[in-house]
Design a protein around this nucleic acid. Structure first.
Lengths: 225, 225
DNA sequence: TGTACATCAGTGAACGCGCGTTCACTGATGTAC
DNA sequence: TGTACATCAGTGAACGCGCGTTCACTGATGTAC
């Protein structure tokens, strides 16, 4: 997944560096990253509750106690997993919005598709991001900040489209919540397999997302957008 | 919760009926219902994963093996719990729509509030209804049917409001999915505590739901409603 | 009404399991001199 | 450059736990006669 950790600035060690890449070594070198990657792999293919600290350690090829050198407990690891999910999703949304910034509807459709597609492609990750696995988000500032950023992006986007001449004074934040709810609802329904139509292919997903996005976009338009 | 089971028609037993109400009796009388009620109680106050078959049996005052006389396994019990949740939610929505059927917007707001309020008042129950606890819903026909009924209700409601003169030919089902996604998204965000504003009181919940419902309602209106 | 009997709802012990976390430890690493 | 040492990342065994499910059983119930 990612290849460099930010938190632990690696001290320059010139001697024996080649040895640190070998298999079967006692010290791992970058176990923190390896554990996160293992957790991400597991989270991609399991139901969230199926991701145990032990299974993560197992996948990283390390003893069950080793993770405690890098995370205070299981929730601490999942909080970072969730945080990385938010970062990835937000950056997908940013690219989408950037590529379509001239046309409001296209921009809205693009951001909607980025959101929904992320959820559809990473259902368990999406669940960890929004579910009860991390009980109190305020304990994890990085997670809190990254999760708030995606709503801010949506709000900014809507504000930038708003037409102050029409029904003036409608709070962009309120509209953003409505838009967010719609995208989140569609994503959640897809993740939980509630929509029985097939939405397997990208095109089908795109189609249903556009249809839903268009309805809410019209609603936003007539509320001052 | 409910007081009568439908599945097991009680054979008339006249003798010793008084004894069956006593405490400490060997046969329970209506353990199936008691287990469901226990599960409902637990599900109301715990995170879904906290509801174990053993804890249900414990709360019903019965041995850990007893539930297997009434349900094939844990998922079988949870499927019935989910089914009862859908029934309760749908009937709340039906009452709401019935009380406001003259005015489309009021009707829509009412149905929205019924949906969102149910989720907010029964967060864990809501999670069991939509979450991965029951993996394959088609194994439980009762659950499948009751869950489909709530979407049908929404679709019928939207169809009955539709104005064929405007942008004719927009499929009510498509609009219903958009509306459903919005309500479901708002409900899910509330249940997962994603909206940081306080929505504790009925009035606050009503207010935020109305705001969101109004946006989507406008979107629906300009799509043929 | 009374009795024999089949039915079946509930028991309690046991199974094997994987989990999160702790602990004293050991072995590798980088650093001070 | 070489050595002594502090640091600390990872080990492996153990803890206590609650879980879902099974099994042979037992005791209450309703029914046929």
């Amino acid at each position: 997944m990612s290849d460099e950790t930010e938190e632990r600035p690696k001290p320059r060690r010139r001697v024996k560096r080649r040895k640190t890449r070998k298999e079967g070594r006692y010290h791992h070198g970058n176990l923190r990253r390896a554990l996160l990657d293992a957790a991400l792999m597991l989270v991609e293919r399991e139901v969230p509750k199926g991701v145990s600290l032990r299974s993560v350690a197992r996948l990283a090829g390390v003893s069950a106690a080793a993770p405690y050198r890098h995370f205070p407990d299981k929730e601490g690891l999942l909080a970072v997993v969730a945080e990385e999910g938010f970062r990835a999703m937000t950056s997908a949304m940013e690219s989408a919005v950037e590529a379509n910034k001239e046309i409001p509807l296209a921009s809205f459709r693009a951001i909607a598709f980025a959101y929904v597609k992320y959820a559809a492609m990473h259902p368990s990750h999406f669940r960890v991001m929004f579910g009860p696995e991390v009980a109190d988000r305020s304990l994890y500032p990085g997670l809190k900040e990254s999760s708030e950023r995606s709503l801010e992006l949506l709000t900014r986007m809507i504000r930038s489209c708003q037409r102050p001449d029409l029904i003036g004074g409608v709070d962009a934040k309120e509209l953003a919540i409505a838009a967010w709810a719609t995208l989140h609802g569609l994503a959640t329904l897809l993740v939980d397999s509630q929509l029985d139509q097939p939405h397997q292919t990208d095109a089908e997903l795109q189609a249903v997302t556009n249809r839903v996005a268009d309805v809410i976009y019209r609603g936003l338009s007539y509320s001052g957008l």
